[in-house]
Amino acid sequence: MARTSRLLALLQILRAKRRPVTAAALAEELAVSERTLYRDIAELVAQGAPIQGEAGIGYVLRPGLFLPPLMLSEEETEAIVLGLRYVEQRGDDTLSRAASEAVAKIEAVLPPAALEIARNPVALPGPKRANFPENRVAIEVLRRAIRAQAKLRIDYGDLIGQATTRVIWPIAIGFMNETRSLAAWCELRQDFRHFRTDRIVAASEIGERYPGRRSQLVKTWRSQMDSLAKR
């Protein structure tokens, strides 16, 4: 592997690691000696890469480094564009606009060959759904509560139209082909529940943060969903 390619590969590996990784492990993954690895680390640091660590302990890439899209492979370019186009078609207004802007930013820095792949990809999203069920509560209200880890009081109508009032801890919004769904911990049921956003009649924050970390709730929820899927 040429040194330039190796340095880029090293950055990619560090970027994917959340915890310090030893020089020995990095050298093994790159198929180089530890001496070469140390030289590569020193070169990247000299060029401004925010790598923190030392020999014998491990290295980690601090936040703040952006690897430009022009480093993407053909398959990576297609995967990103496919995902963004899917969101552009099926996301709410905020996400749809953000996806469109992100595609434009990526295309602006791609070299000609990669730009051709982005604009004429092999993989395409399915046909856009004409209309989703109308929401009475804006998705942005739900998104804001999720980010703030704020408890919500909602009025929710079930399949037969019967309304209930619940206090929930919103953790994620699911975008399906036919509907959109809010995943949350329900204080009434003392369990995770999924609420179709078009059936949420009203929603308001009650001025309380739910306990713990949202990331841990999401982890528990995913584990529960995986267990149900295996049954």
Rank of each mutant, 00 (worst) to 15 (best):
L159T: 08
V141C: 10
L82K: 00
A114C: 01
V87Y: 00
I171N: 03
R39T: 14
Y210A: 09
V21D: 03
S215G: 01
S73Y: 12
R153I: 08
D226H: 04
D158M: 07
E205A: 14
G161K: 03
K17H: 09
A138P: 15
I206C: 02
A172F: 09
L72R: 11
R85N: 00
Q190I: 10
Y38K: 11
P170I: 01
A104Q: 14
A130K: 10
Q190K: 12
L7N: 15
E208Q: 15
V32K: 03
D40Q: 08
L72Y: 13
A202Q: 15
L188C: 06
E88S: 05
A23L: 13
S204K: 14
S204T: 14
L67V: 13
E76K: 02
A229S: 10
K230V: 00
N120K: 12
R3N: 13
A172V: 05
F195T: 02
K105E: 00
E75A: 14
R39F: 10
A172S: 11
R143C: 01
A148Y: 08
Q52T: 06
I106V: 08
T94P: 01
L115N: 00
V87I: 15
R90A: 08
A49V: 10
E78R: 02
A202L: 12
D93P: 05
R231K: 11
A172H: 08
E178N: 13
R193N: 07
V32F: 04
R144M: 13
V21S: 05
A114M: 06
A150T: 13
A163F: 06
L10K: 09
Q89A: 09
P127S: 10
G212E: 04
A46T: 11
S33A: 14
L95V: 03
S215C: 04
R90I: 05
R129I: 14
A202E: 15
L110Y: 02
D92N: 11
N135L: 13
S204C: 12
V103T: 00
L95H: 06
E107D: 14
V141H: 13
A98P: 01
R231H: 10
L217W: 07
N177S: 13
T197N: 06
H194S: 14
W221I: 09
R196S: 12
L159R: 09
R153E: 15
V32S: 05
A99T: 01
Q162G: 05
L152F: 07
D92G: 06
I171M: 04
Q149W: 06
R85S: 02
G53F: 03
I160T: 14
Y59K: 06
L8D: 02
L44M: 01
A130E: 13
R147Q: 15
G58H: 03
T77M: 08
P125M: 01
V32N: 06
L11N: 07
R18H: 10
P112Y: 00
R143T: 05
E43G: 07
H194A: 12
D191V: 08
R6T: 14
L70C: 12
D92K: 03
I57Y: 10
E88G: 00
A184R: 02
A183N: 02
I206Y: 01
F192W: 04
V218N: 02
V60Y: 00
R231I: 11
A104V: 08
E29R: 13
I146N: 06
R214V: 08
E43T: 14
A145G: 05
V32Q: 06
R199W: 04
A184E: 04
F132C: 03
L7R: 15
E74D: 15
L110M: 11
I106C: 01
R19S: 13
